[in-house]
Amino acid sequence: MRKILFLTGLVFFLHGCVKETSWPLQGETPDRIIVDAIITDEVREHRIKLSYPVSELNQKPEPVAGAGVLISNEDEVWPLTEDPANPGVYVTPSSFYAQLQKNYTLLISFDGKVYTAKTTMIAGQVFRELQVAKNEDNELYHVDWVANAFSTEEAAMWELLIDWSMVPGFEHLDSLDNHARMLFYTLPTLDVSEVFAPMMQSVIFPAGTMITERRYSLTSQHAEFVREMLLESNWAGGLFSVTPANVGTNLSGDAAGYFGACAVTELSIIVTP
C-alpha cells in the first residue's frame, strides 16, 4: 500500500515536470507502406487504408495509390477497388463479410513488391453496456467505465461513436465538435506502463447524446499488436515507459501495420440525466 501511495505521489509529482520541447528527428523516414486493415463479420463495404509514413508529427500521410489489393479465404477471392474520392483507400464488395473458422489472406501488390498477411477471426460476445457519469463541475457527462482492461480470455477492442449533434444547442457546431470516437481495450496482459499511463484527454458531452458501443473480438496475435501499439502511444510518456521499438506486424516484407479480422457486437445508448 505504501509503495502504491509513493508511486501515485510520484505520478502527480512528475506530471508537473512535463514540458513541450523541440526535438528534430534523427535519420531518414523509411519508405515503407503502412497497412490499416480490419475486416469484420458485418455485411458491408470494408475499407483498407494504405499510406506512407510521415516524417513529422501531425503531417497528413501520403496515400499509396494504384496498388492491387485482394482478400481471400479457402473458398473465395475478393478484389478490392480503390475509392476514386479517397486515394489509398481500397474497398471490398458490399456483400463481403468475414466468417469464423476461415483463414483470411490480404495480398497487396505495389511497385513490383508483394505484401501478404494472414488472419483469422474469433467469435464476438454480447456485453454489458458502458457507464457514463456526470461531471462534478458542470452539467456534462463523461465515459466512466467501458470494460475491464485485463482479461486472460476475452481480448477485445471497444469503439465508442459518440454523437451529440442532435442535442438542442449543439446542432450547429462543426462535426468535429459534436462527435467523438474513442477506443478502449481489454487485453490478456498487464504492463507497468499501462498501470502508470499518462493522463488521457477528457471527452465530455451533454445529456441526450447517443453513444454507439461496438465490441471487436481480438485474436491473441491481434491483442499483442494492440498492446505494442498502446505501449508506443497511449501508455508512453508515463512514469514507467518501456524501451521504444517498432510495433510488430503480421505483414510480410517491410510493411508496417496490421491486417485483422474481428467479430463485432454492438449496442446503442442515449445519455439520460
Partner: peptide, 12 residues
C-alpha cells in the same frame, strides 16, 4: 530510441 517517422493505425 527516437522515431524516424510516424504512421497512423485506426486513428492513433
Amino acid at each position: 530510441t527516437a522515431p524516424v517517422g510516424f504512421y497512423y493505425n485506426n486513428g492513433t
